[in-house]
Amino acid sequence: MDYTLDNGVLSVAFTTAGGSFTSIKTQGREYLWQGDPSVWSGQAPVCFPICGGLRDDRAVTRSGKQIALGRHGFARKQEWKLAEEGENMVAFKLDSDDHPELLEQYPFPFVLTARYALDGAKLLVSYEVTNKGDEDMPFFIGGHPGFACPLDEGEAYSDYTLRFESDEAAELCTAVPSTGLIDVEHRSANPMVGRDLPLSHELFDVAETIFDVLESRTVDLVKKGEEKGLRVSFPDFPYLIVWSKPEGDFVAIEPWGGLSTCSDEGDVFEDKRGCLVAAPGETVVRTFSIEIL
């Protein structure tokens, strides 16, 4: 099922297939990547109950439970249900009671609610994770929105830059494309120039750029020399991934609560960086926003 919110400033389309948004428009300009299966068919998947990947797609909890999850988990591939609808707000939920087969991959009963609201030129995104079980539930949550770049015809990908709120570390952890995991012990030079990450297709020839030590909590996608673009604010997320495909006219700005398994980590789920834990009956909330500038 598809839904649309329009407050006269911003028009955002949503789908229950994956429980996420499929369009962000203002004044006729589309800001969200519209998908191309030959490049990347995604648009703004929800990463749950992991962000990134596990070593050999597997992990074990401290209590000995087995976890078997593909990259970014399963939430993005499920049919969600409408949970709530109101003026300038819509919410979808993924309930393990409706998908008992998911407990074979992730043995913790849960409800994941994705709540979306419009506030002027801003889309507010709230992920609400509820533990329906009788023991602590470890998990990870993250967003993966991909934005159109360039925004208008006649422009080049390299006309755009990502502008960070703060100075960032001179060296970043290194993605390992062959495994999908992360090397934190052999670090790479940060390609930023000052607080800007100039965009080029060559930047993504090898892998994504992973900010595992992150000062900024806002990043702007803007055309150089202009204010045209958008701002992603992620106060609740400690990590940021910047990713595209060499042939893709998009850039994904991904606020994550965790990372792919790192070279200095074992395979105990709770010992991974950023692991959140919901007590029985508890709901843990993490938010970010997308604002059109």
Rank of each mutant, 00 (worst) to 15 (best):
W40T: 00
T22A: 05
F269Y: 15
T130W: 01
E265V: 11
G52M: 04
A91S: 15
E153R: 13
G86I: 02
F234P: 02
C275A: 11
P177F: 07
L259G: 09
T161Y: 03
M1P: 06
P235F: 08
F139K: 06
D6K: 06
L203F: 02
V242N: 10
H144F: 04
Q66W: 11
V285N: 02
T15K: 06
K132E: 05
Q27M: 05
K224F: 03
A17Q: 12
E185S: 13
R286W: 06
E185M: 14
V9Q: 15
L5H: 00
K224M: 15
G70T: 14
R71G: 07
S289Q: 01
V213D: 11
V268Q: 00
E202M: 07
T61N: 01
I50P: 02
S166R: 15
Q66R: 13
Q27G: 09
Y106K: 11
D2P: 02
T179I: 05
D136G: 03
G73F: 02
P235N: 08
D267M: 14
Y157E: 07
E171C: 02
P246G: 11
A121S: 14
F288H: 12
D98A: 15
R115N: 10
K81H: 15
N190R: 07
S188W: 10
R76N: 05
L197I: 10
I253N: 04
T218S: 14
E247A: 15
K245F: 04
F234Q: 11
I290M: 10
M192S: 14
A117I: 01
Y127V: 04
P177E: 14
D236R: 07
H186Y: 04
T22W: 07
K81A: 15
G120H: 12
G133K: 02
G120P: 04
G146C: 07
L112T: 09
A121Y: 07
I182S: 01
E171L: 12
G180T: 07
N131Q: 05
E254D: 08
A121E: 14
L259D: 03
S260W: 08
V9W: 06
R273I: 07
P191H: 08
Q43H: 03
G19Y: 00
T113W: 00
D36M: 06
G225L: 10
A170Y: 02
L5C: 01
L103H: 03
K93P: 00
E171D: 11
H99T: 08
L82I: 05
S158R: 09
G146H: 04
G194K: 03
L10S: 05
E202I: 09
A121N: 13
S263R: 08
E101A: 13
D36S: 10
G229T: 07
D249I: 01
